[in-house]
């Protein structure tokens, strides 16, 4: 059957191996060690220190514990988080 042919095996290796190699290189270089930093990279500075009216007291507290004390919202605050 065609699926057993050398051509298919070679083709799969040619297509599949490079990304695997690059993935290994990436892992070795520690590219995936601080993934959570990437998830925080979208926030602007101070963005996480503004008042958000839907949060409960404890939710706000844990946020401020991580990111610093509350700042007063600028008047154009809607621009950041609406």
């Amino acid at each position: 059957m065609f699926a057993d042919s050398i051509a298919i095996i070679a083709l799969s290796l040619i297509i599949g191996l490079p990304p695997l190699i690059f993935l290994l290189i990436g892992v070795r270089h520690g590219y995936f060690d601080h993934v959570d930093e990437a998830s925080r990279s979208i926030f602007e500075e101070n963005e996480l220190r503004y008042h958000r009216p839907w949060e409960s007291q404890s939710q706000m507290q844990s946020r401020l514990d991580h990111h610093g004390p509350l700042l007063s919202n600028p008047t154009t605050e809607w621009e950041r988080w609406l």
């Binding site: 993934v35 959570d36 990437a38 998830s39 925080r40 979208i42 926030f43 963005e47 996480l48 503004y50 958000r52 949060e55 946020r63 988080w81 609406l82």
Partner: peptide, 11 residues
């Protein structure tokens, strides 16, 4: 995450 003000749960 941007609107909620909280990073994505698990990257």
């Amino acid at each position: 995450p941007k609107i909620i003000g909280r990073p994505i749960y698990s990257y």
